[in-house]
Amino acid sequence: MAENNEVLRFDNVTKRFGETIALDSLSMTLERGEVVGLLGPNGAGKTTALRILLGLIKPTEGQATVYGFDTWLQPVQVHQRLAYVPSEFNVWPNLTGGQILDLLGALYGGYDPDIREQYIERFNFDPNKKGRTYSKGNRQKIALIAALMTRADLLVMDEPTAGLDPLLEQEFQTVLREAKSRGQTILLSSHVLSEVEVACDRVAILRNGRLVEYGTLQDLRHLSARTVEATYRGDPPDFADVTGVEDVVFENGHVRLQVTGSTDPLIKAMAKSEITGIQVREPTLEELFHSYYGEEPVDG
């Protein structure tokens, strides 16, 4: 059974497709009410992880559970508490948007029609058109409304804002905050790093099927290099043997460097010179992401 607030657990989950290891011993948990971002480039294993979570594919090793239910063996119990927004929503071409929402709502086990209407209005969606006439953005709106109108305990979203215009992306941020305030748990796989940075409590970074980092942004920032910029008079400070300092660049009484770990040795080194100004900047999520992936593209 699930422990207290635990909503989701990947327990040493591995998935192989022939010789290819798509997911390698993934272990992570989500607590109730958390918003967790899932990041990684192409082939990192994000889609495989989500498909295992949804019970669409079977883990080769390990176990994934949602509210204590095995995602492969007990998918119906899992899906009673979960709603999913895919990145590419293929609709039934001969059904109207309204009929698709009817069907998905009915198969979920019911929904509040008022809430549905509310989201239709907020996302400025016309439910009376045939599926084949909707643009990508409008198809995405159907997936979002269908998931949100169920008030499911866990929302699993894979690139949910793909195809939405900037105004609706903003509306989506508001919707996410509301969902979080209602106590809904959200797993958000996204390429929009600013979206993840604003919305997520924790971030999981996958690379080549392995979880390389999982923690709050604050944790990740502490583990990563911070940028320090300072101005000085007279002789430049000497950082030659200072622990954790690298990428030092001097330029006309100005120095810029990266520091990892404790800043104490750096401050002591600086104290030997006449420092007239200092600024320490935490890395953005984008910088963190690039620090894990180097030049690899930020893609799904």
């Binding site: 949804l54 669409l56 119906v76 979960l82 590419e88 929503f89 998905l104 198969l107 997936a143």
Partner: peptide, 15 residues
């Protein structure tokens, strides 16, 4: 193949 079945099977619907 189109992913429409996956949409249905992420609901409480048995395969």
């Amino acid at each position: 193949a189109s992913g429409r079945l996956a949409t249905l099977l992420t609901l409480p619907l048995e395969r």
